[in-house]
Structure formats: C-alpha cells, structure tokens
C-alpha cells in the first residue's frame, strides 16, 4: 500500500516555527532543521524529536498543545503549511503522519490565528471562549437522579445517528482558525443541532440557541459568510448542514422568543 513501505527512507526537513515567549511578546518564525525523520512517525513525534534536540542544545523547547494523541481530545491544533491540522483531510494534527511529507520539504508551523484565541506561548492559544459558549446553554437542564428509564425515550435511529454525528465535535477550534472571518458558527451549530434534534432537548430549544449565539457574539467571533472552509478543515467531519440548522433555529427562536 502507498505510504507503507517499511524501507522508505528517513527524511530531512526544514521547519519554520512560530516562536513567541508569551502573550505580550512579539513573535517570529524561526527556522530549524530536523534529520532522520521516519515516515512512520506522527507529526507530533517529529516535533518531540525537534524539542529533544533543542533542549539538549540549550534552547527552550517549542510549546504546543496536545494530549491524547488519538484524535479525540481536541487539545492539539497547529496551522501546518497554511492548513488547520495540516494537509490531510479529516485528520487532527496528532493523527497526521510524516509519510504525508517528502524528504527536503519545508514545513511552516503556526498557531491558530483568531482574535478570540489569544496566543499564550509559541503554538499554544487560549480557547476558553469555546467553553464559555457551551456554558451559555450547551446542555439539557437535568439534575442527577429522578430521570425516566432510558428506554422510555425512544428515538428513531436516523435521528439518533444524526445527533451523534453533530455530537462528535472535538472543540479543537480548527473551524474558527480556518475561517477568514474567525467565525465559530460550525462549532456552536454542532451543539445546537445535536440537542435540537433530540426529544430531550426540546424544552430549552429556543433559549439555548439564543443564549449560545449571544455568547458567541460576545466573545468576538466573526459572522458566517457561508464559505465553508470550516467544514472542509474540520478534522471530524462536522457538516455545514448544522449551520443551516442553527440559522433556522435562531430565526425561529427570535420570532417566538422565550427569553424574558
């Protein structure tokens, strides 16, 4: 199979990496060389190799966010050669492997760039604005205990499956970073549509969308102009249909608002 030749040769690469000491400092692109990179390595393992080299030579290693390295926690980010999460579609940076690159390549690595995501250091940004959008209404208000038996709420399989698809958003922020307007519509719409589709979400359906959109605006995310780069760059394939649904939900809610 392509890309799985165990004898494929190690690569030498030139990396241009955004370095910035902290949120106040000015940043620059620094150039580093890495040698003998195996095509079987993940992109972040390649970064590990660079960091070990830097550390040994007394240079502060590059800070980047990462945790599960399985593509599910949403902690990793990185703009790689001008693409959120790099060149492979439907893939987080941690799941991107070096077999997608060639010997001699120059790779440019930058942080997410969006007003509501201030840079903390190097490639780490603050994405807490996304948490605050969730806190504005991304839940069903049930306390622990006193709920009906799970099978008393039958849900048609196609709806359950669609709700699941929307629920798989990993809150990485790639959609915002990829959008020329820095819009968080795809992110917000994923949660709004998941809960709007489910019977459990009906009671708070209107207030939820109104409150989440209001928080999104308050955080300074841009407007949506239907370009679709968010969905194109989303590593888990959240569909643009969710934005259409959010718009419908929002308009409907604003005509018959229950927010008092």
């Amino acid at each position: 199979m392509a890309g799985n030749n165990p004898n494929s040769k190690p690569m030498n690469l030139t990396l241009r990496v955004w370095r910035q000491k902290n949120s106040q400092a000015a940043g620059t692109l620094e150039t580093y060389q890495v040698k003998d990179i195996s095509p079987e390595m993940s992109f972040l393992e390649m970064m590990d190799v660079l960091n070990e080299d830097l550390l040994r030579s007394g240079v502060d290693p590059i800070a980047f966010d990462h945790d599960c390295r399985e593509g599910i926690c949403g902690m990793c980010s990185l703009y790689i050669n001008g693409r959120a999460h790099g060149p492979e579609r439907g893939t987080t940076t941690c799941q991107l492997h070096m077999r997608k690159f060639s010997d001699g390549d120059t790779i440019t690595i930058e942080p997410w760039r969006a007003g509501p995501f201030p840079i903390l250091k190097d490639l780490c940004v603050d994405r807490s604005a996304l948490d605050r959008i969730q806190q504005a209404g991304g839940y069903i208000s049930v306390n622990t205990g006193g709920v009906p038996d799970a099978n008393e709420i039958p849900i048609p399989k196609p709806i359950a499956d669609k709700a699941f698809d929307a629920a798989t958003c990993i809150q990485c922020g790639a959609c915002v970073a990829a959008c020329k307007n820095g819009s968080a519509m795809l992110f917000t719409s994923a949660k709004v549509s998941q809960l709007a589709m489910l019977p459990q979400g009906q009671v708070e359906r209107k207030t939820r969308v109104e409150n989440m959109v209001a928080q999104m605006d308050k955080e300074g995310f841009g407007a949506c102009t239907n370009i679709g780069s968010c969905a194109a760059e989303c590593p888990v394939g959240i569909s643009l249909e969710n934005i259409a649904m959010l718009n419908r939900e929002y308009i409907g809610a604003s005509f018959t608002s229950e927010n008092v």
């Binding site: 839940y139 069903i140 049930v142 205990g145 709920v147 009906p148 359950a160 998941q194 489910l198």
Partner: peptide, 8 residues
C-alpha cells in the same frame, strides 16, 4: 442519566 442528558 446519560440518556436524559442527551448522550446519543
């Protein structure tokens, strides 16, 4: 509990 929360 999880179903009531909307876990799909």
């Amino acid at each position: 509990q999880c179903v009531a929360q909307g876990v799909p």
